[in-house]
């Protein structure tokens, strides 16, 4: 089904524009046309379908599901909802306080916030279109595990000690049952098909309108890598034999603040050019999930110690993911 985009790129680049097949520029152009057309079509169709399905999912509902669960279940629920709930990072603070003041443990809330930027419908659609479903599945599992383990470690270290005092107070009050927690009465009414359609089309307009330029930038970078970095260069210089390539990838990703949309096409090119999967993932997650603007926002509810702790936990997590993936990927993707 996706072959139609290869055909489209053949037609535009080789026939209409008359580029000679096999030259570097033509290669890069072909890659650009194929990937942008494929991704944009996939995005429009899939965002609409997904939005139809989740029109009634909102944060109040999510909070209700997560509340009063066993902790262990809570981490997975937090991370899982972080992946599927429509959520803009500018709502991080209200969400954090809403969860905390309902007595949801810090680690569970952070599992939500860790996973949210890594996994979202756009990332999954793009990975699926560019790198296939096996890789997408691995990516999703890793994204959830990064969130769950990060949350657990935070709670083991009793990170809630270093909340800002008003947030800590709200949490304690909720735990001792002073503040009344929200009940099912707050849940939204049932939606009609027409409501869902309206929601889904506004989501498509909103999301695609916001990210189309990131798709172009990401794919352009990916195309440049694709056309101009020699085959096997990464494998020779940054192969999985070099353990330090993983922390180097994490550090390189830190100052780059981007969303998953722009990074995934780059990721495809890096992998195709022989950069080990684990190193690539470590680099990309560090770019997407550890962002300074986000951290500065969280300062409003956390003390520096907690922020620093979260930062270190994230970085260590990415490195562990990178090393493990480098070690297992030769078997995992042997048939792919």
């Amino acid at each position: 089904m996706l072959a139609i985009f290869t055909w489209l790129a053949d037609w535009i680049v080789y026939r209409s524009l008359g580029f000679e097949e096999g030259t570097r520029l033509a290669d890069a152009m072909h890659f650009f046309v194929e990937d942008t057309s494929k991704i944009l079509v996939l995005l429009v169709v899939m965002i609409y379908v997904i939005a139809l399905a989740r029109a009634s999912l909102n944060l109040e509902r999510v909070r209700y599901y997560i509340q009063h669960r066993h902790r262990l279940t809570g981490y997975f629920l937090g991370s899982g909802f972080g992946a599927i709930t429509p959520f803009c990072s500018c709502s991080s603070i209200p969400l954090f306080l809403g969860f905390t003041s309902a007595g949801i443990p810090l680690g569970v809330t952070m599992a939500f916030l860790f996973t949210s930027p890594i996994i979202n419908e756009v990332a999954v659609i793009m990975l699926w279109g560019l790198l296939g479903w096996q890789f997408t599945l691995v990516y999703v599992v890793i994204g959830v595990l990064v969130g769950v383990s990060g949350g657990m470690i935070l709670d083991l270290l009793r990170g809630e000690r270093w909340l800002q005092s008003f947030a800590a107070k709200a949490y304690q009050q909720a735990e001792s049952g002073v503040q009344n927690s929200p009940d099912a009465g707050d849940l939204p009414q049932k939606l009609t098909l027409k409501d869902r359609h309206r929601f889904a089309s506004s989501e498509v307009r909103d999301i695609v309108g916001r990210i189309w330029k990131w798709v172009l930038i990401g794919v352009a970078l990916g195309s440049a890598l694709h056309g101009f970095v020699p085959e096997g260069w990464f494998a020779q210089n940054l192969g999985s034999g070099q353990w330090w390539s993983v922390p180097a990838g994490v550090l390189a990703g830190l100052p780059l603040y981007s969303n998953a949309t722009a990074v995934i096409p780059v990721m495809e090119s890096l992998i195709v050019k022989g950069l080990p999967v684990g190193t690539t993932l470590a680099f990309c997650m560090s770019t997407v999930a550890a962002s300074f603007p986000e951290f500065i926002m969280l300062k409003q509810v956390m003390q520096y110690r907690l922020l620093g702790l979260i930062f270190v936990i994230l970085l260590l997590n990415f490195m562990v993911v990178g090393w493990i993936m480098n070690a297992v990927s030769p078997w995992l993707f042997a048939g792919a």
Binding site: L59, E60, P94
Partner: peptide, 15 residues
């Protein structure tokens, strides 16, 4: 101010 926003029990902004 996050404290005020919390008092309104808002989780999704803008509200």
């Amino acid at each position: 101010d996050p404290q005020v926003i919390m008092q309104y029990q808002v989780m999704s902004t803008p509200a």
